[in-house]
């Protein structure tokens, strides 16, 4: 049925090892959980050097604040103000951060540091915990801020 007969079957275990994509509905989020307070520890140790003590930015992006600025002359785009889905935050941290050692955090730690960053942005309580279900349930402030490609837009 394969027209060329090239390649070999991918096993479920292989797929599970490599498939780290998280759907915006939370599909494929792993088991595990993490608290804001543990997230603060992870962040202080592994993230703050690049993103600032309070996520105010440095070598790495600013991660906190900016809600309400997108329509102004000086928009501040952060995870809190701009990112439409919390799943994206989890997905990106797990695949790419910390930049010096990507894919080194446990799933628990990714939940924890995501919770901490969301709490700094006022989207999770200071004593909150995140797991697959609660993370998928978060409605980000800019969730409905995106529109399609309207080009050609100059005539």
């Amino acid at each position: 049925q394969s027209p060329y007969g090239i390649g070999r079957p991918a096993t479920p275990a292989e797929i599970a090892g490599w498939n780290i994509d998280i759907g915006r509905d939370g599909s494929n989020l792993p088991e595990g959980r993490g608290t804001v307070s543990h997230g603060r520890e992870v962040f202080d140790q592994q993230c703050a050097a690049c993103h600032g003590e309070k996520g105010e930015g440095g070598v790495g992006d600013r991660l906190v604040g900016g809600q309400g600025t997108l329509g102004t002359a000086k928009p501040i785009r952060t995870v809190g103000s701009y990112c439409p889905y919390a799943t994206t935050l989890f997905d990106y941290i797990r695949r790419a951060m910390p930049q010096n050692a990507p894919q080194s955090l446990s799933n628990d730690d990714v939940y924890a540091v995501s919770a901490y960053l969301l709490s700094l942005n006022g989207l999770v309580g200071a004593d909150g915990t995140l797991d697959a279900k609660s993370l998928a349930a978060i409605k980000m402030p800019n969730r409905d801020g995106f529109v399609g490609d309207a080009r050609p837009d100059v005539k």
Binding site: I15, A16, A101, P102, S104
Partner: peptide
């Protein structure tokens, strides 16, 4: 090889 993460993804 899958299911492992190749070493070139684990450091910049």
């Amino acid at each position: 090889l899958p299911p492992n993460i190749p070493e070139w993804m684990k450091a910049p």
